[in-house]
Amino acid sequence: RHRTIFTDEQLEALENLFQETKYPDVGTREQLARKVHLREEKVEVWFKNRRAKWRR
Rank of each mutant, 00 (worst) to 15 (best):
W54S: 12
E44R: 12
E44S: 11
V45L: 13
R55D: 06
H2E: 14
Q19F: 04
E41T: 07
T7V: 01
K22A: 04
W54P: 07
Y23T: 11
L17C: 08
Q31A: 14
R1T: 07
K35S: 12
L11R: 05
E12S: 13
R34H: 04
V45T: 15
Q19D: 05
A13M: 02
R55V: 10
R39F: 09
F18S: 00
K42S: 15
V26K: 11
N49H: 11
T7M: 02
E40W: 12
K48G: 08
T4D: 15
E9I: 09
V43Q: 00
H37C: 14
T4E: 15
E9D: 13
D25L: 01
Q31K: 15
T4F: 13
D25F: 03
R50W: 03
R3D: 15
R55N: 14
P24T: 00
N16I: 14
F47C: 02
E9V: 08
T28I: 11
L17A: 09
E20H: 11
D25I: 04
H2N: 14
T28L: 13
E30L: 11
E15Q: 01
R1A: 08
T4M: 12
R50Q: 08
K53D: 13
F6H: 08
Q31N: 15
F6E: 08
L32A: 03
T4G: 13
T21C: 11
H37R: 07
L38A: 05
A52Q: 04
N16V: 07
K48N: 06
Y23N: 04
A52G: 11
E30T: 09
R50C: 06
K53A: 14
T7A: 05
N16D: 14
K22L: 03
N16S: 07
W54L: 07
T28S: 13
R29E: 03
F6Q: 06
I5Q: 14
E44Q: 09
R39A: 15
R39H: 11
N49G: 07
L11S: 10
E15K: 12
R50M: 04
Q31P: 02
H37Q: 09
Q19E: 03
F47R: 00
E15G: 02
N49R: 07
R34Y: 06
W54Y: 08
R50E: 08
R3Y: 15
Y23V: 03
R50T: 07
V43C: 04
T4W: 08
E9A: 04
V36Q: 15
P24L: 01
K48W: 02
R55F: 12
R50Y: 05
R3E: 14
F47E: 02
Y23C: 06
L17W: 02
L11W: 05
E30Y: 09
E15V: 01
E41S: 09
P24G: 01
A33E: 00
R50N: 07
T7L: 03
T21I: 11
E9S: 13
E44M: 09
P24A: 02
L14A: 01
F47I: 04
L17E: 04
N49D: 10
H37L: 07
V43L: 06
E40V: 14
E12W: 06
R34A: 09
V45M: 13
Q19W: 08
T21A: 06
Q31H: 10
T21D: 15
R34K: 07
R3L: 14
T28E: 10
I5H: 09
E44A: 13
V45Y: 08
A13F: 02
R55S: 12
K53Q: 10
D8G: 08
G27H: 13
L38Q: 01
V26W: 05
D8F: 10
L17T: 05
D8C: 07
E41I: 01
T4I: 09
E40C: 13
E20F: 11
E30I: 10
T4Y: 08
A13P: 06
K48S: 10
T7D: 08
E30W: 07
